[in-house]
Amino acid sequence: MSSTRTVAEGVTAPSSPTSQGSIRIRQVSHRYGRGGAAVTAVGPLDLDVPPGEFLVLVGASGCGKSTLLRLIAGFETATQGSIEVSGTAPAPGRTAGMVFQQPRLFPWQTVGGNVDLALKYAGVRRDQRPAQREELLRRVGLDDTAHRRIWEISGGQQQRVAIARALAAEHALLLLDEPFAALDALTRERLQDDLRRVGTESGRTAVFVTHSADEAVFLGSRIVVLSKRPGQIALDLPVDLPRTGVDADELRAAPEFAALRREVGLAVKSAAA
């Protein structure tokens, strides 16, 4: 199995239905601070992500994973180079749905109220929101919870609400910054199962940040390992594992899964050395 892929160079094309959710990164670097105190967090790097891919960024702490995610989301602007999402420059709140390490829900709202607000900001008509809200909650495994208060549900359920809220806007791109890091192992594994299914069903492009080689192999259709700061691509690995019609426990127990997990784990350690 080849562990690297070259990045195809090309001319920027205007956004089209077939480019929705695509990411094009060219010679991007990002620095914090000025003068002698400046620190380069990431880059330079090139990266292409086609529509529908589930890309996982993995690496040691401080390698620039979250910085790169914020650049893609449009929360920050690259010091050098260019980023395009669906053929245009990223814009905060318009480029992608975002899920953070903490759910960041509105505690004074119910579960359904949090999703309704996301649908409102997405421009969904009031009379269409109840049906869409229930469908989104069903997709993340929260049927019949719309009436419950945020403090009445577990941390894992709160993160499911955050995912439903991110899906509400119908962005072609979903960005997730270590959303399961604070959860216990069992809850984390269950949410990995749910996210893998939701990602496959929605067909959206996703970029997921994690420290875990196991999580990267289970979720990703492609894995990019970043080197220590400044983060550059140390490994670009396609994941040739079935994404539908397979039991999650059987997949985790498969020899191919173990081999990929070992390859990614060794790459992370080598890149951080």
Results as ranks from 00 to 15, higher is better:
162 A>W: 12
186 L>A: 13
186 L>N: 14
196 R>H: 11
121 Y>F: 15
141 G>S: 05
169 A>M: 12
172 A>S: 14
186 L>G: 06
184 D>M: 02
98 M>D: 02
199 G>N: 15
126 R>M: 00
183 L>A: 02
128 Q>I: 02
140 V>S: 00
199 G>W: 15
109 Q>Y: 15
101 Q>V: 06
186 L>V: 15
88 T>P: 04
199 G>Y: 08
175 L>K: 15
88 T>D: 05
137 L>M: 05
122 A>H: 08
193 D>Y: 09
148 R>C: 05
198 V>C: 00
157 Q>V: 10
172 A>L: 04
103 P>F: 06
198 V>P: 07
131 A>G: 03
91 A>R: 14
174 L>P: 05
160 R>D: 00
93 G>V: 10
156 G>Y: 10
97 G>P: 01
145 T>H: 14
149 R>G: 05
109 Q>E: 12
87 G>C: 04
146 A>V: 12
100 F>V: 01
194 D>L: 15
119 L>A: 06
152 E>W: 13
90 P>Q: 07
180 F>H: 08
161 V>P: 04
93 G>S: 03
128 Q>G: 05
154 S>F: 12
201 E>D: 03
189 E>K: 08
133 R>F: 01
156 G>D: 00
102 Q>C: 00
108 W>R: 05
182 A>M: 08
117 L>R: 12
143 D>N: 13
188 R>A: 00
152 E>A: 14
195 L>G: 02
178 E>K: 08
117 L>T: 11
97 G>Q: 08
198 V>I: 14
159 Q>N: 03
141 G>Q: 09
124 V>D: 02
127 D>N: 08
163 I>G: 01
139 R>S: 13
156 G>V: 09
168 A>K: 06
193 D>H: 12
126 R>T: 14
175 L>F: 11
124 V>P: 02
115 V>E: 04
184 D>F: 12
113 G>R: 12
105 L>G: 03
200 T>H: 15
177 D>A: 01
167 L>A: 03
130 P>S: 05
131 A>V: 14
192 Q>V: 06
91 A>H: 11
148 R>S: 08
101 Q>T: 09
182 A>F: 13
150 I>L: 05
91 A>S: 11
142 L>E: 03
158 Q>A: 06
194 D>N: 05
184 D>T: 10
132 Q>N: 06
105 L>Y: 10
97 G>C: 02
88 T>N: 13
115 V>W: 07
195 L>M: 06
155 G>C: 05
99 V>S: 10
128 Q>L: 10
196 R>K: 14
105 L>W: 10
94 R>I: 00
106 F>S: 07
186 L>W: 14
140 V>R: 09
144 D>K: 10
188 R>P: 04
140 V>N: 02
174 L>D: 02
159 Q>I: 06
195 L>F: 15
152 E>C: 03
90 P>V: 06
